[in-house]
Amino acid sequence: MLQLVVNGLVLGSILALAAIGLSMMYSILNFANFAHGDFLALGAYLTFVFSAILGVHLILAGAIAVVITALVAVCCDYVIWKPMRKKGAGSVTLIIISIGLALFLRNLIIFLWGPDLKRYDLPVKRGIELGSVVITQNQIVVIMVAIICMFLVHYLLKKTTIGKAMRALSDNIDLAKASGIDVDRVIRYTWAIGMALAAVGGILYGLITNINPNMGWFMLLPMFAAVILGGIGSPYGAMLGGIIIGLAQELSTAILPTEYKLAVAFVIMIAVLFVRPRGILGS
């Protein structure tokens, strides 16, 4: 049981990281980005390419992957999202474009690197035993990196100008425009930061298990569940939601077949929609 809690916290911190960006984009651009999970997979794969194929050290490879993923996100903003904003496209249009982008990214990964499972080239180390619980070093790394990233996000949102602008934008985009914020610039930063966090999430996922082209797709539902549970537009809600969903998914394996983990996220999401559609920390 305690083991499941540990596993849940590990998965939860990955979900939490990845969900932050999804939640921020959701409230700032006012649409659900269905390509979010595939950016996560992109980050994981780029790391794989640099470390396992090109032989770069894993940490450096991860850093390069995060930067490239963020750049890809910014490019997408220039090519797709910004022109659509200028046209005044409705959220439904953006949602459909995002699913097109998701199909594109996922199949680009399959095309380039194949559909099968991949592993990072990691030394196998023995886990630390605490009573009946085993924690691997990688799991500890995941939790620590996640905590550091969350603190960075917190610092960014509270202390930096760009972070404050993001919050202003997510509260009320018209007011933010009127007060002279360069909306396009803030949106580009939000894409970059949100997708960088997703990429980190993807890499961390690769530390604890295999990566595959569909990983982003499978993470999408739990991420949305986390965002809706935490309250759309609330980064802290997304973190909290992510951890709760991660814990719930892992704990469910005590009584349900592991294949139904996804159903747990689904049921929580439906319950939230019935009981409190604005989420725990939503306004």
Binding site: I99, G100, F104, R106, N107, L108, F111
Partner: peptide, 9 residues
């Protein structure tokens, strides 16, 4: 499928 994604966009 990649092509379908691009076409949709």
């Amino acid at each position: 499928i990649l092509f379908i994604g691009v076409l949709l966009i």
